[in-house]
Design a protein around this nucleic acid. Sequence first.
DNA 1: TAAAGTAGTTTATAATATAAACCAAAATTT
DNA 2: AAATTTTGGTTTATATTATAAACTACTTTA
Lengths: 94, 94
Amino acid sequence: MLKDLDPLLHSQLRLGVMSLLLGVDSAEFTWLKEKTNSTAGNLSVQLDKLSEAGYIEVEKSFNGKKPLTTCKITKKGIKAFEDYVNNLKGYINN
Amino acid sequence: MLKDLDPLLHSQLRLGVMSLLLGVDSAEFTWLKEKTNSTAGNLSVQLDKLSEAGYIEVEKSFNGKKPLTTCKITKKGIKAFEDYVNNLKGYINN
DNA sequence: TAAAGTAGTTTATAATATAAACCAAAATTT
DNA sequence: AAATTTTGGTTTATATTATAAACTACTTTA
């Protein structure tokens, strides 16, 4: 039977962010923005959602005097991603 | 680079319908409703969207005097599904 | 023949995604 | 050195989407 897909991950931009974060130790806002080809506003909102869900950790610091936002996937995020992929397979593997 | 996901397919209910239709010759409205665990209203709307996109064909007939809605995936729908899955793999494989 | 069930559609509302507008500071241009 | 543009974002408004509620039309059952 088809399993429900975590609505937090079933969003192109949030899924893209999570996918990218899985492959790195941590990532900067601007890098994610470039890689996902998203607008800063949209990315900012979606990062907040992932952060509130505990799927990522967002650290806001300064690089000299410029703001620097760094993101890192959490254990919970990795688990959620894996579950999502497993459920998704029910849809796409016939 | 992450490819865009067809927004028509990147919806749990519509993806579920397409997935189910791939495995059968054709399917009745009530069967899809049961399998996807959706409400009739939601299913009706989403079938319309898939139909308008040419991803499925919807045939409305009568079973005796009861309405009977039958759905069938189209070639275009199969292609769109395959493309969607391929693009999705960029997000979930690694 | 009244009530309940079937098979849907239409419309209204809630949720979501996205874009536009904005902010503060830094770097660049004139 | 004052004005303009760029960087790195956030906030807010709007458009899109999903979902639920209400409705239609007909049928079956009590």
